Computed example of a mutant assay.
Amino acid sequence: MITVANRIYVKPEYHDAFEQRFRERAGMVDTMPGFVSNMVLRPVKDGEPFVVLTVWDSREAFDAWTQSDAFRQGHARSGTLPREAYSGPNVLEIHEVVTSTAPRAT
Rank of each mutant, 00 (worst) to 15 (best):
L92R: 10
L92Q: 12
G27E: 10
F35H: 11
K45Y: 04
K11Q: 14
E24Y: 05
D16N: 09
S58Q: 11
G88C: 12
V40D: 03
R72G: 04
G34A: 05
V29S: 14
A26K: 02
E84L: 03
P49N: 09
I2C: 04
E96G: 07
F35E: 10
R83S: 08
E93D: 09
F18M: 01
G88D: 13
F71M: 07
T99R: 05
F22T: 03
E13V: 01
H15T: 02
A105P: 12
A85D: 04
H95P: 02
M1Q: 13
V98S: 11
A85P: 12
R21L: 07
M28G: 11
E60I: 09
E13R: 02
G27N: 11
F50I: 00
V40E: 08
R83E: 14
V40L: 15
P103K: 05
P12C: 03
A26V: 01
R25W: 08
D46L: 13
S58A: 11
G47S: 11
A26R: 01
Y9G: 06
H15L: 05
L53A: 12
A76F: 03
V55G: 15
R23D: 07
R104H: 14
Q67L: 11
V55P: 07
G88H: 13
I94S: 09
P43I: 01
F35D: 07
N38K: 11
E13D: 15
M1F: 09
E13K: 00
R25F: 08
D63E: 12
F18D: 00
R23S: 06
G88E: 11
N38D: 05
E13Y: 00
A64D: 05
R7E: 07
V51N: 05
S37A: 15
Q73Y: 01
T99Y: 10
D69L: 13
I94G: 11
Y86C: 01
D46G: 06
P49E: 06
V52P: 06
M39T: 13
G34T: 10
V44H: 10
T99Q: 08
A105L: 15
V40R: 04
Y86R: 06
T101A: 10
V91M: 08
G74L: 04
P103Y: 02
E84I: 02
R77K: 15
G74R: 05
V91F: 00
D16A: 14
E60M: 05
Y9N: 13
